[in-house]
C-alpha cells in the first residue's frame, strides 16, 4: 500500500508542502486547500495527512470511496454527494473541506510534497 508517511518531529513548519499541494491539485496556493495540514501543537508541529486506513470507505453512503490498485484511498467525485461523513469520522482528521468546495478532498499519496519537504518530514512509503 502506498502512503505518505509523516514524521512530525522532523517538521520545521515551513508550510511548503501545503502550498505545493494546493497548487498541484487546485491550481492555487492556499493552505486551506491543502490535503496536508501542518499546525503548531504544544510540543512541536502536528501533521494531519491520510494514512490510507480506509475508515472513510465504510462510512460513505454512496460507495464513492474505494482503494485503487496501489491501495490508495480515492474519492469518486461523480458518486460523492458531499455529506462529509467521511470527514467527520476520519480517525486522523485528514479528510478536508474548504469554503466554496462542495466535496471533501484528501491525500492520494502523489508524493509531490515529499520531494520539496526540506527536512524529509514527509516521505512516500510503500508497505
Amino acid at each position: 500500500m502506498k502512503r505518505l508517511a509523516a514524521y512530525s518531529e522532523r517538521c520545521v513548519g515551513c508550510e511548503s508542502c501545503m502550498l505545493t499541494c494546493s497548487k498541484t491539485w487546485f491550481k492555487e496556493e492556499d493552505k486551506e486547500l491543502s490535503r496536508i495540514r501542518v499546525t503548531q501543537g504544544d510540543s512541536g508541529y502536528v501533521i494531519n495527512v491520510c494514512n490510507q486506513c480506509g475508515v472513510c470507505i465504510d462510512t460513505c453512503p454512496t460507495l464513492a470511496i474505494g482503494r485503487d490498485a496501489q491501495g490508495v484511498v480515492r474519492i469518486d467525485e461523480s458518486k460523492c454527494v458531499g455529506c462529509l461523513m467521511c470527514a467527520g469520522f476520519c480517525p486522523t482528521e485528514s479528510m478536508f473541506t474548504a469554503d466554496n468546495k462542495e466535496k471533501p478532498f484528501k491525500c492520494i499519496a502523489c508524493g509531490i510534497c515529499s520531494k520539496i519537504c526540506p527536512p524529509e518530514a514527509l516521505v512516500l512509503e510503500q508497505d
Partner: peptide
C-alpha cells in the same frame, strides 16, 4: 453552503 458544512461536520464529530 459553508455554514451547512460547518454545522454538519460538527455534528458528525459529536456522533463519532
Amino acid at each position: 453552503l459553508t455554514t451547512l458544512q460547518r454545522v454538519g461536520l460538527k455534528l458528525h464529530k459529536e456522533i463519532r
